[in-house]
């Protein structure tokens, strides 16, 4: 459900919720998604806010519009969502990592070495 008092704006939470539904297969390619009114009713929010969330997904080409019929899942939706999350989540984690290292006065080389070591270890486990 939504976190109405959270940091993330509600329309972005709506977009993310819809992305999750697409990723887990609730909405398939070329299937019609919920309208702004259905979403407004489901999440107890203003329909304009729900529309803003849907609009965001259209702009990112995760959804496409059939005039008069509503919004549908685009064929590349899953790929686009995964690529987007990879770049955003990973960048965020790296920022936090570097910041924490700085506060702990970890040298650059030391940090890089730690990352390499971790990567090696995980690769080793996979084999």
């Amino acid at each position: 459900m939504l976190d109405l008092n959270g940091v993330t704006p509600i329309y972005i939470q709506i977009a993310e919720w819809m992305e999750n539904q697409i990723l887990n297969g609730t909405f398939q390619i070329d299937e019609k998604v919920h309208s702004q009114y259905t979403l407004a009713e489901m999440f107890n929010i203003n329909p304009a806010t729900a529309a803003k969330g849907l609009h965001l997904l259209s702009e990112e080409e995760i959804l496409y519009t059939k005039r008069g019929l509503g919004k549908f899942v685009s064929p590349l939706a899953k790929t686009i969502i995964m690529e987007k999350r990879k770049s955003q989540t990973l960048t965020g984690l790296i920022t936090d990592l570097v910041l924490e290292a700085k506060q702990l006065q970890v040298e650059d080389d030391e940090l890089l070495e730690m990352i390499r070591k971790e990567m090696k270890q995980q690769k080793g486990e996979e084999i």
Partner: peptide, 9 residues
Amino acid sequence: LDEMEHLLE
């Protein structure tokens, strides 16, 4: 405002 902000445009 806090109790009705989700409704407002």
